[in-house]
C-alpha cells in the first residue's frame, strides 16, 4: 500500500499528527467514558467523615446495600 521509505512531506506529517491526536483523544475519552467507578463513589461519601464536617445537604443519598 504505502511505501515507508518515502520521505514524508509536510502534508503527510500533518496527517500523521492528526492520527496521533485522534488516538490520544480516544485513549483519554475511553477512560472518561467509564464514569465514576464504585470505589470513587465510596470515597466521595466518606469524605464528610474525613474532617468531621457536616454535609450541607440533609439527605444522604440512597441507603447502603449489603
Amino acid at each position: 500500500m504505502s511505501n515507508p521509505d518515502e520521505k514524508p512531506g509536510a502534508k503527510a506529517v500533518k496527517s500523521r499528527q492528526r492520527v496521533i491526536g485522534a488516538r490520544l483523544q480516544a485513549m483519554y475519552d475511553d477512560v472518561v467514558r467509564q464514569g465514576v467507578p464504585d470505589d470513587f463513589e465510596k470515597i466521595l461519601s466518606a469524605l464528610d467523615d474525613l474532617d468531621g464536617s457536616q454535609p450541607d445537604e440533609p439527605d444522604s443519598s440512597s441507603g447502603r446495600k449489603g
Binding site: Y28, D30, V31, V32, Q34
Partner: peptide
C-alpha cells in the same frame, strides 16, 4: 473524577 482518572492514567 472521570477526567482525573484519564489524566492519571497517562
Amino acid at each position: 473524577i472521570p477526567y482525573m482518572r484519564a489524566f492519571a492514567r497517562s
